[in-house]
Structure formats: structure tokens, C-alpha cells
């Protein structure tokens, strides 16, 4: 199975390539585009990125495993992230996590993450990357059951 960027993304890549002094710098943007396109970053996508950025496959793989937001496995469920860092913990993130695990783990993958930079809106979650701040169990039920 091979991977190729779709037309829209290929165009974006062409445009991006002009904005960096070296092809290597395209690495993170390319990984993002691949993840957007397929929902995760497959080995085939990394092979293609290795060709475009002119870096060895292992470099791509090594970089992809450094950053927590790159997913190298296909997801079966949609993801709800719960921030667990201090301001959120002080504001009740543990109870939020418990609530999510007890009520929504069948439909959603519940993942704990470190500080998302939303301490003013603690406790906070994300649904498929979108921030939900000052969450309460009732509010999460509404949002998650509606989606």
C-alpha cells in the first residue's frame, strides 16, 4: 500500500516549500498534513515524507515519536483529552476524568494530557482537538451525547 498526498495537500506542500530555506524544515508541516488526511501517520506516509523532505525514514520516525500529538496508530474512537496538570487538577480534573471514564469511554477514547495552556478555564478538555473550558460533568454529557 502506498501513500500519496491528495491534490489539496499537494498544493499546500508546494506552497509551503517556498517558505522554508530547506526541505527538512517541512517535516512537521508534512506530518500534520498526513495526519489530517488519514487520521494518523502511517509508515507509508512517513516513507512519502522521507522522499519529500529528503531525510532518511528513521529521521521521520524518530521525529514523529518525539511529539505527543502525532498519532502513529489508527484510532478506533474519537478522542477526548483531559488536562491533568496543576491548575486543572486543583479545579477538579480528576473527577472529570472519572466521569468520562465511567460514562463515555465506550464511545470516546479518554486520554490524559499535560498542560494545554487553558489554566484560566480549568478544568478543561478537548474534543477532537477543540478546546472545551470550565467543563462540568453535565456540560460534557451534553456536548458528548450531542456529537
Amino acid at each position: 500500500m502506498s501513500f500519496s498526498f491528495n491534490d489539496e495537500n499537494s498544493l499546500k506542500i508546494e506552497h509551503l516549500a517556498k517558505r522554508y530555506p530547506h526541505k527538512k524544515a517541512l517535516l512537521l508541516p508534512l506530518l500534520w498534513l498526513a495526519q489530517k488526511q488519514e487520521g494518523f501517520i502511517s509508515d507509508e506516509a512517513m516513507t512519502r515524507i522521507s522522499e519529500i523532505s529528503q531525510m532518511p525514514f528513521m529521521h521521520i520516525y524518530s521525529v514523529a515519536t518525539f511529539y505527543t500529538m502525532f498519532k502513529l496508530q489508527k484510532k478506533s474512537k474519537r478522542v477526548v483529552e483531559v488536562c491533568r496538570t496543576l491548575s486543572c487538577e486543583l479545579s477538579g480534573s480528576e473527577a472529570i476524568k472519572k466521569h468520562l471514564l465511567e460514562n463515555h469511554s465506550d464511545t470516546y477514547e479518554i486520554v490524559e494530557v499535560e498542560c494545554m495552556g487553558a489554566c484560566g478555564g480549568a478544568p478543561m478538555c478537548t474534543l477532537e482537538g477543540k478546546y472545551i473550558e470550565n467543563v462540568t460533568p453535565q456540560m460534557l454529557d451534553e456536548v458528548l451525547n450531542a456529537n
Binding site: 512537521l28 518525539f66 511529539y67 505527543t68 500529538m69 502525532f70 499535560e114 498542560c115
Partner: peptide
């Protein structure tokens, strides 16, 4: 001036 927004990917 050219400005490019570059997204990180989860690393403090």
C-alpha cells in the same frame, strides 16, 4: 516581511 505560522506538535 514574510510571516509563516509553524505548528508545533506537543512538546513543552
Amino acid at each position: 516581511v514574510e510571516i509563516t505560522v509553524h505548528r508545533g506538535a506537543g512538546a513543552y
